[in-house]
Amino acid sequence: MFQKLLHYGRNFYVATGLGLLAWMTFFDANDLPTQIRNYWKLHELDQDTRYYQDKIKLVQTERKELLGNDRLREKFAREKYLMKKEGEDVFVIVDEHNEPLEK
């Protein structure tokens, strides 16, 4: 009699455990598909963060160069914004990666 009761008790706990696992995997607010989507979104946002941090470093480097030298400021304005003096044409020679040859 005791073994029969133990067998039913064990089945009850196994069924309850499996039901809880199924509930947490598919029906809960923090279910597995939601967790996977959140993980990939976090990964994308981390990549965006790295991209923008690199861009910020590039802009800071350009800013330091420009603020220290009038000749470089004029060169930057001519190359980036195609500014020119009256009666003058500006030509920027670039390499195969679309980078100016003179830096």
Rank of each mutant, 00 (worst) to 15 (best):
27 F>E: 03
27 F>A: 03
28 D>I: 09
29 A>G: 08
30 N>V: 11
31 D>Y: 07
31 D>A: 10
33 P>W: 12
34 T>C: 08
35 Q>Y: 07
35 Q>W: 07
36 I>A: 06
36 I>H: 02
36 I>N: 02
36 I>S: 00
37 R>I: 03
39 Y>W: 02
41 K>I: 01
42 L>F: 10
42 L>I: 05
42 L>E: 13
43 H>D: 02
43 H>K: 13
44 E>N: 14
45 L>E: 04
48 D>V: 10
50 R>M: 03
52 Y>E: 09
53 Q>E: 12
57 K>P: 02
58 L>F: 15
58 L>I: 05
59 V>P: 00
63 R>M: 12
64 K>F: 15
65 E>M: 01
66 L>A: 05
66 L>H: 04
68 G>T: 02
69 N>D: 15
71 R>F: 06
71 R>P: 11
71 R>N: 04
72 L>H: 15
72 L>P: 15
76 F>I: 10
77 A>I: 06
77 A>V: 04
78 R>H: 01
79 E>D: 10
82 L>W: 14
82 L>E: 03
83 M>W: 14
88 E>F: 00
89 D>Q: 07
89 D>H: 01
92 V>L: 09
92 V>N: 06
93 I>D: 01
93 I>F: 13
94 V>Q: 13
95 D>P: 11
97 H>F: 09
97 H>R: 10
97 H>Y: 13
101 L>I: 15
102 E>A: 08
103 K>R: 13
103 K>E: 05
